[in-house]
Amino acid sequence: MDPPLINEASFSAANPAAYSLAEIWPFGGEPGRLGLRMGSLGGGLGESSGNRDGSLEESTVTEQSGGGGGRKRKDVSSEDESSKMVSTSSANGLKNSSGKRMKLEGSRNENGNSKAEVETSSGADDKPEEQSTKPSEPAKQDYIHVRARRGQATDSHSLAERARREKISERMKILQDLVPGCNKVIGKALVLDEIINYIQSLQRQVEFLSLKLESVNSRVNMNPTIEAFPSKDQFDAATLLFGSHTAREYGQGSQAEWLHMQVGGSFERTA
């Protein structure tokens, strides 16, 4: 089970990639030493600095014995398992620096318990798994706010997706507060419909108000002294007529793409 010992010089010169891997994977050393270190780290990992200590020690150890390199490269391929194994080990009392926990199914916890015991006693049999718990911890710390409940997936992609969904739902809540009468609506699609309708109504309102302002402006301009009521009424009627006319024009797509005018809509919401 013991990996063959290689000289420090030859190992570091031959494969520098493995050397860097050894720094990433803290438990890459010889199994004999690993058992000892597990004993010491079992107490030390409760603190936040425990992980760093382990990694620093380990980088020095793997310089001396580079036999773990081959095995480490295997672990790179099996990282899917590793992300799952992280949660078990962390749930078993190895506190992370972030203090985040992942809970998985009960059976998985039991497995993790037995494995942890095995590792602390012998340390040699389950070494790849124990190694693989370490590298994915920094990846986990990217999603501090995300918590996996029972039976939820814990690989990085689903974590990221969950974070994205939470963000989207937060924004949707903000939007629901903004749009009147949107709190009663259930379902994201309907909420989006409400938001779209509201924006369209607001834009229509802006168009209507600009027409109104134009009429008011021109009336004030053309004969600022005369402000008789009949003329005002005429102008209001004119704006209404021209309003329908302009709406038709916008509908033909000849003008104002950026306004996204909607044709033929009733002014229920605007009123």
Binding site: S210, L211, N217, S218, H245, T246, A256
Partner: peptide
């Protein structure tokens, strides 16, 4: 600008209202 070209045809009114809309946005 309207004072210079004071006309009350439909096209003129449409143009002016569009200009007001653009100014608003």
């Amino acid at each position: 600008q309207k004072r210079s070209s004071a006309s009350s045809s439909e096209e003129e009114i449409c143009k002016r209202s569009k200009r007001i809309k653009m100014a608003a946005y």
